[in-house]
Design a protein around this nucleic acid. Structure first.
Lengths: 344, 344
DNA sequence: TGTTAGCACTCCAAGCGTGTGAGTGCTAAG
DNA sequence: CTTAGCACTCACACGCTTGGAGTGCTAACA
């Protein structure tokens, strides 16, 4: 059932050859550059076998073979040799990243830029889920027309804001201050998810029915924390995919750019990879990845040293320089994790 | 020197014909669809004249004529008839825009989406310059590692934040509160530009040398307000330009997408249009617009009823449905202005 | 039995000549 | 000044040919 030594070696040569050149690879090319000296005819026999098993196809009768998605999958799972970054690449990355004294959001943008520029594909970064971050501070600023601006801050310094419309009477400044103090004391140190639970719990307690301030406080905060906060994805270097001959035709470019604008399917994938361990590779038209047919996505998560916060990675053609990109993604994630280590 | 009635009419027909079809327009086509009945030969004479004056060119000997940038310029300045939006289009726009109870940022994103979807080109929105907005509120949240999160809010509810690194002793909570109160009292109602001036002025006064709190307050705020805050441009529907046959070739697509990623040249243009009155049209390789050769930009500013806040518009090929897009841009700006009327 | 040389076959891509149609500029007549 | 007529140009599509790359198959060989 499995592939023998020789088949592996030939499949490897086909995939790497095709990644390097972009052209279909013929039996001759393989026979020439192969350590185990084989004639093209023998290689052809093996290739016919590999084709039957679905690892490679030929675009037409008289062309060489190119890997299928299954072929790529097999390649990254078993044959791929991840190389280390050169010292040069490393310094290049380090110099693009100023870790200290900077907003988390900026840091993540830098990460996106590093990913795209080092890979020459498209860099993507999923910002930390706000619901998973730890509550630090809340602040109310009354605006005009009965609108109330609510600002909340996570332990790491991530800031989110929301405007709520108050219908009834407006609280006075001192009432607002009271509410602020109350919430800051009660909720500090909880994750947003925990905050939500706590609010619901407290609202059900009898006490809240009689204490007007408490009632207001809970009412506000429920409205604040109830809506979903849109997940934030940073995309850098989308234009790079225009350089890829793999997407030269109009329609596939359109498909990709629309997918980038949509973002949802990216979020799903990045979210999944956030929960996983180590570097993940999604290939071609694998499930949940239809919008990105012909692409591969290499991701891993970043953390604050304690828990995963988000994930980052690179999207490029299936015909991708995996060994390099995996190294870049991995290193960038480490860099970002270290930078965030003391923030959350 | 000027063009006579007939030349105008023919130039108009060429531009509109080419906008509608994308093809070069020949003398025959014009002669057929023209009110003033002229033979193709006569039309040809006029066309030769127009070509000599630089309003049109023919891509090759045996093709019709297409407008030059100068031709488009003349067309939009003198010949363009802006049509009104149909009731249908209007409701379509209105339905895409929920004006109330929403963050300014969201509102502007909606505007971008309206612009791109209604024009089927690319919508762009320049968010209000933070420096031009009116200061409302400042808040300090201490983070770990001597980092201080500063949040400031404009009158309209726009929130910006910044992290500053404190080297020396950290202020206590009550000192921070004092500083907060002081700044909120002193600076409220000023624009950020005025705020900057005031800080400098106060720092020069003798008093600030002796009052430690005041010194801290001024020191912090100088650091906060000194850096430039990146102008924010919203781009929606960049993928739409892939539909345009005008940018079918690889290189011009790349050029455009890179320009979108850069943003600076867009900001320059949008900023300029913010200071101007009414709808502005930039065409082709006009000065400051080299990155967008082959494109036109239609913009106008939006306001809060008192002063211009930012600008919005549409980028598309020079061969653009000007009459429709101008109407869309204009209407959208009105919509946004009305929505922001009571916010600032 | 596995490997290899040889051969016929297929198919793409590039090159070339040709015909066609659209559109022009020019000239001479109205 | 306008127009009909005509010769000319050029892009584009079509068909044809050729060359090369690569395949599958078969038969011989170790």
């Amino acid at each position: 059932m499995g592939l023998n030594e020789r088949s592996l070696s030939i499949l490897d040569a086909i995939v790497e050859g095709h990644i390097a050149s972009g052209e279909p690879i013929g039996s001759r090319t393989i026979a020439d550059r192969q350590k185990l000296r084989l004639s093209p005819a023998t290689v052809r026999n093996v290739m016919a076998d590999l084709e039957e098993r679905g690892y490679i196809v030929s675009p037409h009768t008289s062309a060489g073979r190119i890997p299928t998605d299954k072929g790529y999958r097999f390649y990254v799972d078993t044959l791929l040799q991840v190389r280390n970054l050169t010292a040069d690449e490393r310094t290049q990355i380090d110099s693009q990243c100023s870790v200290s004294n900077i907003r988390t959001q900026e840091l993540l943008k830098q990460a996106g830029h590093i990913l795209s520029s080092m890979s020459s594909y498209t860099g993507i970064v999923l910002a930390p889920r706000f619901t998973a971050t730890v509550f630090r501070h809340i602040e109310f600023v009354p605006l005009n027309q009965g609108r109330l601006l609510v600002i909340f801050v996570s332990q790491s310094g991530l800031v989110q804001n929301k405007i709520i419309q108050l219908d009834g009477k407006l609280p006075t400044a001192s009432e607002l201050q009271q509410i602020t103090n109350y919430l800051n004391n009660e909720l500090s140190g909880l994750t947003i998810t925990e905050v939500r639970a706590k609010i619901v719990e407290q609202m059900q307690q009898e006490k809240s029915q009689y204490d007007a301030m408490l009632k207001d406080a809970l009412g506000f905060s429920q409205r604040v924390f109830s809506g979903d906060i849109e997940d934030d994805v940073i995309i850098d270097g989308a234009a790079n995919i225009l350089d890829q001959p793999d997407f030269a035709d109009r329609s596939s470019m359109q498909r990709l750019f629309r997918a980038f604008e949509q973002k949802n399917s990216l979020i799903t994938l990045l979210d999944k990879s956030q929960q996983a361990q180590g570097v993940q590779i999604y290939i071609g038209s694998q499930a949940e990845f239809e919008d990105f047919a012909g692409c591969s996505l290499i991701t891993t998560n970043y953390s604050n040293g304690k828990q995963p916060l988000g994930s980052l990675g690179v999207i490029g053609p299936s015909r991708m320089k995996y060994s390099q990109v995996v190294a870049v993604v991995d290193y960038t994630a480490q860099l970002i994790s270290r930078a965030l280590e003391f923030r959350e």
